[in-house]
Computed example of a mutant assay.
Amino acid sequence: MAMTVDSLGVGTHLSDNNSILKASENRGSMVTLIRSSFGFATKPSSILHKRQTLSSVATITPRASSATAVEDPSHGETDTIPTPVVIVDQDSDPSATVVEITFGDRLGALLDTMNALKNLGLNVVKANVFLDSSGKHNKFAITKEDTGRKVEDPELLEAIRLTIINNMIQYHPESSAQLAMGVAFGVVPPEQQVDVDVATHISIYDDGPDRSLLYVETADRPGLLVDLVKIITDINIDVKSGEFDTEGLLAKAKFHVSYRDKAIMKPLQQVLGNSLRYFLRRPTTEEASF
């Protein structure tokens, strides 16, 4: 059973209560699966130095505004809450960014989510809804409104991710306890926490003569995708492509990286690994007091 909608022209704007930038400062953990793969047409470091960009492209609604937010009011608190799944895919369509959202059978047509994406300067050019044993899947392709091309800006990809999650919290408040953003503006924050020092693992492997594969596993939080790319590019390493997964409370990022169009040599691998570990470590009391 499937439904397809092409060339959707929808538009609205989000609440001004809290910005994505504020949410990105929160280091809560995320109990969901969020997968984002991406590629960069140009070196991204020039667009990542001003963190204010995130707050200018989208804002956050702190909680669901009414009980009608849940698609099916028959779902009670005693029901098993399905695992939210959000996939932002840069690989399957050469001309568009593909987004897929699943939350059991609780999701509707997600018109409000598509409206919110329109407010980010995006067009929803195709939408498809299909059912399988895991629930109702809402899949749609988006492009940038000004260029008609797929999204390649890491900050905008992160804004897309947070906008989708915010809308899920707004219209399905029962998902708040499963999402890291529940700490910042959800109804119920997640009960579990992850020790970032224990959870963080970083590995770098050669992946051919012209690139290396960087793998980062750490505690998830809003804004992590943007920060990781900034750290990498700040030491003049190019990010060619990548995949960003959040599984349970952990974020798992894979980046294809290079230095001057070559695989990263061992000394620079050590510099990159140390830079990432320094950034991802648990803040000390002395540092936090300044």
Rank of each mutant, 00 (worst) to 15 (best):
T12G: 14
V99F: 03
K266M: 04
K22D: 10
R281P: 03
A141N: 02
T42D: 10
S36Q: 12
I34Q: 11
E77W: 09
V271K: 14
S241E: 08
V183D: 12
T68L: 12
D153Q: 05
E100N: 12
D93Y: 08
T78Y: 08
Q270T: 13
T32S: 13
M1Q: 09
A251D: 04
V5W: 09
F244K: 01
V188T: 15
E77V: 09
D227G: 03
S203L: 08
S289R: 13
M265Y: 07
V98D: 10
R63G: 04
T80H: 09
F185I: 01
F103T: 02
I101F: 03
E287A: 10
F185G: 02
D210W: 07
K118S: 15
V31D: 13
R282Y: 01
P73H: 08
L131D: 04
S55D: 14
P62I: 06
S74T: 13
V198A: 15
V98P: 02
L107M: 08
L131Y: 08
L8E: 04
M168V: 15
L48I: 11
S36Y: 05
A251R: 00
S134T: 09
D245N: 15
S66Q: 06
M168K: 00
L249P: 09
S212C: 07
V88M: 09
V196A: 12
K230R: 15
F140R: 01
Q193R: 11
D195V: 07
A41I: 04
